[in-house]
Design a protein around this nucleic acid. Structure first.
Lengths: 215, 215
DNA sequence: ATTACTAATTCACGAGTAA
DNA sequence: TTTACTCGTGAATTAGTAA
């Protein structure tokens, strides 16, 4: 990916024609006006940019290339492997227990996640620097446990991501989002009582990770 | 960002030492073994990579640079301007009306979004190709209208994003996520009855956009 | 085999300048 | 003013080869 293309991209030349002189753009890249001119001509002949009356516009080809670079970078940096979270167990409010006791949700978890959930969620308080990670996780395609209406009451859908908890338990991170928790608390479910299995209590440290295949 | 660094990144040299010969890596980049050798030496002296016994490892410096490039690309390609949605108005379930009638939520909207919401949400069915856009929106920093507990009942937090609806109404997209809607339905709120203001009915087309400043 | 040096060559850069 | 050409210089590349 050429320096010039990145500069034009940052100046939104993929959205609207960018009016600028070769001199000014060259200066921004720290190269001579002559070099910029020559390179720009090359980019035009390669079909990366269009020039119309002193205005620059990126072609579809350039934009596609930028997108694939962006995706490649994201995959290398964040995706592919796994997102690792660490935090401390915090006291739940009994909400998790309540919803996992509702047969329809339980069936949904069994169907979508492949295990029968222990009736209770583990709430983990993650440090502020992992909130970015959390948001990134939520931008991935979730497994959706459908919501429903029962006796006039609405039960919202639950977004879930299979997770490895404490390096050994196969469970899931869930985002019921009827939770009162802010962005710093994440909820985990598993086939068994996580606290018992890992022999931990409120306040203890815990780590978990979410696998992101190709997303 | 150097070609070599991108190649090493794609080979996960930021996670674990990569064993490879200069010849092989050079071939992948379409350059000579000699050029690769020379450039690698340069990258080491610049502090971008480490070489230990024939293995390559990216330094923190290189990883940081890759991250900032990734962010810059994402911002240029997806962020910066605005996310444009288009879809058809669908019948609501009266859920929106209900929750916007709850004083605490109403106060929350007034405080966080700066307008007094009309008691009712506009539900818009977006086409499948915009679901990716929706997920991207949700990965941005939202305005959070706090949840609360009242009379033993839990009212979850609401994530909101200020939006321009039908090119003229300043409202917001909300994600109560206690909604029964799937990922294809988005909910809008505004200071007034959107349907009346825009003179639209269920089934009509509508467009709205969300501004994303620096996020 | 491998990496990296030296030498030959190519090619990219920017000064000068025409249009 | 602007853009883009020519051309001399030097940097980057590859071939050959030593270690």
């Amino acid at each position: 990916m050429d320096e010039i293309l990145l500069l034009l991209l940052s100046k939104r030349a993929h959205k609207e024609p960018l009016h600028a002189t070769t001199r000014a753009l060259a200066a921004e890249l720290g190269i001579s006006q002559q070099s910029f001119s020559r390179k720009a001509i090359g980019l035009v002949s390669c079909g990366y940019i269009k020039r119309e009356g002193g205005a620059y516009l990126l072609t579809k080809k350039a934009i596609e290339e930028a997108k694939s670079l962006q995706k490649a970078l994201s995959d290398s940096l964040f995706g592919g492997a796994r997102l690792d979270f660490g935090g401390r167990v915090v006291r739940g409010l009994g909400q998790g227990k309540k919803f996992l006791s509702i047969p329809k949700y339980k069936k949904g978890v069994e169907k979508e996640l492949g295990f029968s959930p222990f009736p209770g969620t583990l709430n983990v308080n993650i440090p502020p620097e992992e909130i970015e990670l959390r948001l990134r996780l939520k931008s991935k395609n979730p497994i959706i446990i459908k919501g429903f209406v029962q006796k006039g009451k609405t039960y919202g859908p639950i977004l879930a991501y299979p997770a490895l908890i404490g390096e050994c338990i196969r469970g899931a991170v869930i985002f019921p989002d009827r939770s009162v928790h802010g962005l710093s608390v994440m909820e985990l479910i598993a086939p068994m009582d996580i606290k018992k299995k890992l022999r931990i209590r409120d306040g203890d440290s815990i780590s978990f990770s979410v696998e992101c295949e190709g997303c």
